[in-house]
């Protein structure tokens, strides 16, 4: 390996690592706020990438149908609850959020898909279709079990992952897709060739991380999410409902997931089940941070990206083995730095 290849691999690793870092942040966020280990994060990556790919082909993405169906399911659940609590005043809001809005998005996608709009508009449309699925998934699968143990929530996560992967297959088929790069530009800096796409990925990731930081530090909703993560009972007592916090964190996670998919789709071919492995690499990073520290999780994810880049150069067949085996030294290290055996949770 010469220096040029080494530097190329660093660039490659950091580009993927930036995406893993975003996913790691979303996973830490969701876990801290809701105690959900969000395995289906990867499916949002897939849905983001493949929805955009469908739009590029001028086809109506199947996810728009899913949004409509999920909306109707949420409507049924919410209406039943409103009637049980005798809260009829909620009905118009429910109908607007979960019937009219998804139907409008569906209509928009139907109209816009064949037009093959500019890339930016397609990206925007992709986000409008995919992101609302986040809070809906929370409402349907997790909210009824908000007090369950981490273990039960994890099994739910895996079940949701199963269902969403299968739906991905229905909507997008078994064929993989790749979307065109945001930028074909290349710059030569000495031995290093910097690609425009890498800069896009890293720039967007950085902007999103700064955005998240500002959101958590300076907005009342950001503070409410932090409060829920620190003390769930305390948060309820000041009027922050766990359902609201859950939906908000799932919205953010879906946004991050879909954006990651949009960023990664030009770099690698995405199949209906690719998101799972992408998301899990974010997880390896998040576990480095103990699922609590945002900066360490992001750093861990960058490390995963670099390791993967070098592994695919040296032993490409064993790439996944090497990346996922990284978790073993991490667990060893954590088990020797954690001194107490935690009692089972309530």
């Amino acid at each position: 390996m010469n220096a040029q290849i080494a530097i190329f691999l660093v660039q490659d690793g950091l580009t993927n690592g930036a995406i893993y870092a975003l996913l790691a942040l979303a996973l830490v966020l969701v876990f801290a706020v809701t105690r959900v280990i969000f395995i289906p994060q990867g499916e949002f990556v897939t849905y983001g990438a493949l929805t955009l790919a469908s739009l590029q082909l001028g086809k109506l993405p199947g996810t728009a149908w899913l949004l409509l169906a999920a909306g109707i399911a949420v409507t049924a659940v919410e209406l039943a609850q409103a009637l049980r609590l005798g809260a009829a005043e909620r009905i118009p809001g429910i109908l607007f959020k979960y019937v009219i809005f998804p139907a409008a998005v569906m209509g928009l996608a139907w109209w816009a898909a064949p037009l093959k709009l500019a890339l930016t508009l397609q990206v925007l449309l992709t986000l409008i279709v995919v992101v609302p699925l986040g809070p809906m998934v929370y409402r349907l699968a997790y909210q009824p079990l908000a007090n369950a143990s981490v273990l039960v929530l994890l099994i739910i996560s895996v079940a949701v992952h199963f269902a969403m992967t299968g739906l991905g297959l229905v909507f997008f088929g078994a064929e993989g897709s790749r979307t065109p790069a945001f930028s074909d530009a290349h710059w030569n800096l000495g031995v290093l060739t910097v690609s425009g796409q890498s800069l896009w990925v890293m720039g967007t990731s950085l902007a999103l991380i700064v955005g998240l930081f500002l959101f958590f530090e300076h907005t009342i909703y950001g503070k409410a999410l932090r409060a829920t993560a620190i003390n769930r009972v305390g948060a309820r007592l000041v009027g922050v409902s766990p359902a609201m916090a859950g939906k908000l964190s799932f919205t953010l996670a879906a946004l991050i997931g879909a954006l990651s998919g949009i960023l990664i789709a030009p770099i690698t071919t995405i199949y209906y089940d690719s998101g799972f492995l992408v998301g899990l690499k974010g997880f390896v990073g998040a576990i480095v941070g103990g699922l609590v520290s945002y900066p360490i999780a992001a750093a861990g994810a960058l490390l995963v990206g670099l390791l993967e880049a070098y592994a695919s150069f040296w032993a490409s067949a064993y790439k996944e083995v090497i990346v996922f085996t990284l978790i073993i030294p991490v667990l060893i290290w954590r088990s020797f730095t954690t001194h107490h055996i935690e009692d089972e949770e309530e």
Binding site: K223, R226, A227, I230, N231, V233, G234, A235, L237
Partner: peptide, 9 residues
């Protein structure tokens, strides 16, 4: 009784 403050804020 346990105050339930947000300790790290």
């Amino acid at each position: 009784e346990r105050r339930e403050l947000f300790a790290t804020m």
